[in-house]
Computed example of a mutant assay.
Amino acid sequence: MFTAYVAVTVVAIVADAGIAVADLLRARFVLANSAEVGVPASWIPWLAALKLAGAAGLLIGLLGPRPLGIAAATGLVLFFIGAVAAHVLARVFHNIAFPAGYLALNTAALCLTAAWQR
């Protein structure tokens, strides 16, 4: 169980930090996707900061205080629920797998972090 917890959490950290960097670099796909679902470009740096904070919280929780990891994972799950909801509300389904994938990954990290806490 510990190995799964560490592996999934590390993958989540890398994935969340990676997409946050793409946001900060204003990657073409990020700008196109954001515009398609109605997210203003001015929000992208703030959303990237939330993803980076979540990734940092997962890392700190992995290295020490598990409650911080649980809080970070919870925040990331809520963030990506919002991203999936934005796709649904905008009726943009052709690329909904990306936020859904991040949602699934962070949900797995949350479940494993909480299970390991006990």
Rank of each mutant, 00 (worst) to 15 (best):
P99N: 07
G18N: 06
V6C: 05
T107N: 01
I44E: 00
A55H: 01
S34L: 00
A4V: 13
G61W: 09
A20L: 02
A55S: 12
R91F: 08
Y102H: 15
N106I: 02
L50G: 09
L62P: 07
A86V: 02
L76F: 03
V84R: 14
G38V: 01
F93N: 08
V10H: 04
V88W: 04
G82V: 02
N33M: 10
R91H: 12
L76H: 05
I44F: 03
R26Y: 11
F80L: 02
Y102K: 09
L110K: 01
F80Q: 12
G101I: 09
P45Q: 01
A86N: 08
N33V: 03
L50V: 13
G64I: 06
W116P: 00
I44D: 00
A108T: 06
L62R: 06
V21L: 15
L52G: 07
T74N: 01
M1V: 13
G54V: 01
L58K: 05
L112F: 07
T74A: 11
A49G: 13
P65K: 00
L52I: 13
R118V: 06
C111E: 11
A108D: 10
A100R: 04
C111W: 11
L24H: 07
V77M: 02
F2T: 15
Y102V: 08
L31Y: 10
R26F: 08
P40R: 09
I70A: 02
S34M: 14
G75S: 08
A12V: 04
F93M: 10
L50N: 07
E36D: 14
G69D: 02
W43G: 00
V14L: 14
A12Q: 06
L105I: 13
V14R: 03
I96T: 08
N106G: 08
L103R: 07
I13T: 00
F79V: 01
L103E: 00
L31Q: 13
G54I: 01
V30Y: 05
I81E: 06
V21F: 15
M1R: 12
A100E: 10
A17L: 10
R66C: 02
I70L: 08
I19L: 12
A15Q: 06
A108K: 01
V37C: 07
L112H: 08
